Each structure stands twice: as structure tokens, then as C-alpha cells.
Simulated scan of single mutants.
Amino acid sequence: MTNLAPLARSLGHEAILRKVYEQADLGPLATRLAERAGPRDPAAALDLSTLLMTQGGAMAAEGQAMQRAAARFQRSYEIPHGAATGPRILAFVTPGDFMSNTPIDFLLAGTDAVLILHFVDAETEDLSDLPPHDVAFMAVGEGPQNAAVLTNLCRLLQDFPGPVLNNAPGTILRLSRDRVSAMLQDIPGLLCPPTTRMTRAALTAVARARRFFDYPAVLRPLGSHAGHGLARVCDPDELVAFLSLNPEEEFYAAPFIDYRDAQGRFAKARVVLIGGKPFASHLAVSEHWMVHYLNAAMETNADRREAEAAWMEDFDQGFAKRHGATLQALAVRLGLDYFGIDCAEMPDGRLLVFELDVAMIVHDMDCATLFPYKKPAMRKLFDAFVALCDARSHL
């Protein structure tokens, strides 16, 4: 079951993305990695692929190709954190962008854990070559590109002899936006707008007929994240315009829900559930309905940071307590050890869920001067994750 050969040592996503957040000069690192990258040093190739993916566009595509090549050269990579004396956590991952797998490396920042990435894909025949580890984590996330991998993992992990967190690839397969909305409809205190998967042809026919199931509607291309291609359409003409700007063949459609607070602002929270317990990740506040942390201008609006700080500091006795029963029912319904939700509080007190995923980015890389309240909240979340891994390794 184990492979005792030395593992290639990778810098990991967290170390590289932290340099990007700090706006460090990446040229010297890129040069060193490029000089070493290849079959003889697949870890350098893997790290260079990460660096390329942070650049977007054609370079990101080149990075993903390099990542796939590195995974063919070697399947397992070691990423030590701190003193590397903590639990050895093996993550089953698959090649892809930053949203393809649970971002475990970010969750281990400031700990002494050792992360081992073990690449799998739809063609992986067995798991006989795993390196020594204390606990495993099924880290492959939902998405059209990962469906075949998750199906294969259902077979590979069926009789796995050791502890595996999130050992539910079949459940994760069902976390698409349309299936999640259907799955959560009857949970008390929760609102998840019904989401429909529609083809371009179907939406075109709807636009031509000058009708729609519910205006205004929110549309997005299948598999998109972080607001890519997301739009609110209020009439058939806007639907036609949306289709002209988005060439994809399949989309998600849902009714638009106005969740503005008493101040007329939209506040969208990211909450992570670890072992069924909720933890605060961030709160993005904006005057625009399409709010994400990267477009909410939190850095330049002190009042928005104050709102997030108050939300985080009061999280256990505030948000988590108000929605405790709903969150507990949600955790029981899914049966996952770790997942995140993007959500908001409705004026009537219900919890509005936009998305549920195991691969949401959770990190502590925001500027400590501007966001001094975030470090303690993220430390609490990270420690809870490592504690869960450590506890499960001793069962």
C-alpha cells in the first residue's frame, strides 16, 4: 500500500500565491524553476505550472499542460509546513485550475503539517503506490471536468483501508448548482433558489418567444466561478445580449433574489463547515448585487472592513448561533467532513445559499495592516482543520 521512495518536494500553492499577493518579484523564482523543470525534477515543473497559472490567459493554459505532464512524471509530491512534525495528510487531487481541488495547502498555513499531493485521474487503476501518511483527504471537487475522476474515485476508495476525510465522491458529484438547489429545498430556515440547467438552444428559443420562466433571472455558463459570465437579465432583449456575449453551450438559470440589507448593501459571506462546525472565512460587502471578495473593494472602504470585522468577531454568538439549526441540518444532509458555502442573510432571517462546494478558496493572505481581524479568524479555522485530520488519523 505504501511507497517508501523519497518524495519530490514542492513549494505548494500557498507559498507561491503568497508571493503573488505580496506583489513580490517572481522573475528570479520563475527562472530557477524553469532551469530545473523536467522529468528529472517534476516538483520544479509542478511549481512552475502553479506560477504560470497565476498569470491567467494563455500562460494559465500552458501551466495546466505543464501540471498534467508533471503528474505523469510522478504522482506524489510532498509539501512540508513549519517544522513538519504534524500529521501527514495525503490529498487525492487531479490536474486542473485552482478551483479543481480542495485548497488544503492554504488551510495548513502556519501549522506543522505535511501535505502530500497524490494525483489521480479517470484512468487511475489502483492506489497501490501511496506514500506513508496518517490520514487521507478526498480533495477532488465538483465540476464537469472532474465527473469521470470522481466516478473512478467511487471505485478506488470503496474499500480503502485507512481514514479518508470527505470520502464521498458520489456526494461531491451531486454538488452542481442545479442538484444542490434541489437537495436543499426542504431545510428549514434556508433559501436556495431553484436552479435549472439550460442549453443555448433552449435559451435562444425562450428569447425568441419573448417569454421566460421568471424575470429577472441570473444566468451563468456551466462550470464558471468567481462571477465569470454571470449576469442578471430582466427581459428577452437582455437575454439575447447575454447569449451574444457568452459562447458557451450550457448555462445555469435561477431567479434573482434581492438580499439587500437595511442599508441597501449586499453582503455575501463565505462560511466553512469542518466536522459540522461553522467557521468564518470572509464577508464581502458591496452596493452591487454581484459581489465577490475580489470585486467588493474592501481595501478602499473602511466601513466595509468594519462590517466584516464585526461579523467575524461576533461570528460564534451571532451568525453561527442565528443559523445554527439550519447549518447543522445542512451538514447532516451532506455528510461531508469539510465544505464551504457562499451565503447571505435575508431580511426575513433565512439563510440564502448561493453555492456549496468543497473547493472554495480559503486563505489568510490579505494584508494584516488593513485586515488585522482576519488572522485570528483564519487561525481558528486552520487549527480546526488540522485538529480534525489529527483526530481522524487516530481512529
Rank of each mutant, 00 (worst) to 15 (best):
C367K: 05
D126E: 14
L127T: 10
G12Q: 12
Y293K: 04
T54D: 06
A226N: 03
F319D: 00
P161D: 06
T196D: 13
Q64Y: 07
T85N: 09
A384V: 03
A202K: 06
A205N: 12
A310Y: 09
R177Y: 03
A329S: 12
A284V: 07
L245R: 15
I116Y: 12
A24R: 13
N101R: 03
L388V: 01
R72D: 05
A205C: 08
G276N: 09
G276I: 08
A226Q: 09
S181V: 01
L173K: 12
H13W: 15
V271P: 02
L52P: 04
F385E: 00
M298L: 15
S281Q: 02
F319C: 00
N3I: 06
E238Q: 15
L203I: 03
E306Q: 09
Y252W: 12
A359P: 02
L173N: 04
Q74N: 09
F256E: 05
M378R: 11
Q55S: 10
E248I: 00
V93M: 06
G82W: 10
H292T: 12
P161Q: 13
E14N: 14
G223T: 05
W289Q: 02
L107G: 04
D348E: 09
R197F: 05
L230Y: 02
T50E: 15
A241T: 10
I274A: 12
L352I: 05
G340M: 06
D383P: 00
I341K: 14
E14F: 14
V180D: 07
E78T: 04
L26T: 04
I257Q: 14
A329G: 05
A207E: 05
A267W: 02
L190K: 06
G227F: 04
T54P: 01
